Simulated assay, not measured.
Amino acid sequence: MFALAVPALLLTACSNQMQPVAFQADGRPLKLSDWHVVEARDGKLVLNQGVVPYDLNTPLFTDYAHKLRTIWMPKGVSATYDPVDTFDFPVGTIISKTFYYPKVGGKDGNPSDVARSYDSSHDFAGEGLDLAQVHLVETRILVRRSDGWAAMPYVWNDAQTEASLARTGAVLPLTLVGAGSTREDFNYVVPDESQCASCHAQDWISRKIHPIGPKARHLNRDYRYAQDSENQLEHLMKVGYLSGAPAPASAPRNANWMDTHASLDARARAYLDINCGHCHNPKGAANTTALTLDISAAADRHLGVCKPPVAAGRGTGDHFFDIVPGKPDDSILPYRMASADPGEMMPEIGRSTVHREGVALIKAWIAEQSGSCITIH
């Protein structure tokens, strides 16, 4: 009897007062609460029963926002493991991603002032987000329907009690407050539904969208659940949300880009994989550039080493090659990462600010490389 109760216990979230999760087989529900996946209750953002949180070894950068990711599936079905691509999720799967920031000045601070911080002490740890400590911005829903995946963005209200559908996106003025009270005003852009598709369409021929993060190499890490810390692949297998996964030691694993114990190459490749690889791959939206930035790319011209740009325009910064070994300041790749100009920046959407630490990582990685490029005038 006890053994049968363990999976149910692991799936139990903070609140048992919510209505059951509602798979919406069609349409665009106007309120996030129509899904009953995550809801604001009693000063917390809580997960419903059966909603499982997860994280990535290296996350995609979005203007320094923190993210709470979740998966829910109907009873009796599971995703099928794949060693390389996104897992094959069954119809009825709901994936959510809530974007939020640590508050500046506590609960009485200006809500448009948000922290530029990697402090995760108030992040989700199996017990819900404390709304006195964090400011919710948006929650994105990816739902697997019979005709494929559908993406819907929801924007949280000022009261932090509900999020409403924003089919045409939204622009939210915020101020990043960093160490020493440095301030940077920026516009946080909530993508519209077509922009969601532009990143999530991993195959640019079919244009069908898929989740980006739920791949073995991103998920193969421990997570601090409400009950205990456990490897995420093992946990998803245990609760019945995944089938066919090998032991974690036999599964691929990307590096954590911030883990200085990992090699600089592993950290940089993991960063490029999650931030750029979903477009820069042989089937992606940027396949015509001949620049491959997912983890499978060989360390040659496919990765940009001594490769001239195809159609970067003024995004080249008058540089000749994507990567010039040993010379990050002569390389196009970090130049575009360090720009917030819409005509130059990469990625083209998904950020309004420059990820300073990410740029520093890629520059250090290029500086470590040996070799030279031949320029023909």
Rank of each mutant, 00 (worst) to 15 (best):
M1C: 12
C14H: 02
S15N: 15
Q17H: 13
V21N: 09
A22T: 11
Q24S: 15
A25Y: 07
A25S: 15
G27C: 12
R28H: 12
P29K: 08
L30S: 07
W35M: 00
V37N: 07
V38M: 11
R41S: 07
D42A: 14
Y54W: 14
N57I: 01
T58W: 01
P59T: 02
P59W: 04
L60R: 10
L68Y: 05
T70H: 03
T70E: 11
I71Q: 13
I71Y: 11
P74E: 09
G76Q: 02
T80H: 14
D85F: 13
P90C: 08
T93W: 11
T93A: 12
T93Y: 09
I95V: 13
S96E: 05
Y100F: 15
Y100L: 08
Y101Q: 08
K103M: 03
D108G: 13
D108Q: 06
G109H: 08
P111C: 10
A115W: 01
S117R: 10
S120Q: 13
S121F: 07
F124S: 14
G126M: 04
G128E: 04
G128R: 04
G128Q: 06
D130S: 03
D130E: 10
A132V: 01
R140H: 04
R140Y: 00
V143Y: 08
R144N: 14
S146I: 02
G148M: 05
G148C: 05
A151F: 14
V155A: 06
Q160E: 06
T161E: 15
E162Y: 09
S164G: 05
A166Y: 06
R167N: 13
G169S: 00
P173I: 06
T175G: 05
T175H: 02
G178K: 07
S181R: 14
S181Q: 15
V189L: 04
D192Q: 00
E193Y: 11
A197S: 11
C199H: 01
H200D: 11
R207I: 11
I209M: 12
G213Q: 10
P214A: 06
L219G: 05
N220Q: 09
N220S: 05
A226L: 05
E230P: 01
E230A: 15
N231C: 07
Q232L: 02
E234D: 14
E234T: 15
L236S: 02
L242A: 03
A245S: 08
P246M: 11
A247P: 02
A247N: 08
S250R: 15
N256A: 12
W257I: 00
D259T: 08
T260V: 10
S263D: 01
A266V: 01
I274R: 10
H280L: 04
P282E: 05
P282L: 08
K283S: 13
G284P: 12
N287P: 07
T292P: 00
A298Y: 04
K307I: 00
T316F: 04
F320P: 00
P325S: 06
K327L: 10
K327D: 14
D330Y: 01
D330L: 08
S331L: 09
I332T: 04
P334D: 03
M337K: 00
A340Y: 12
G343N: 15
P347F: 01
P347S: 01
E348S: 15
I349K: 05
T353P: 12
V354P: 04
E357M: 07
V359H: 11
I362K: 06
A367G: 10
Q369V: 00
S372Y: 01
C373Y: 07
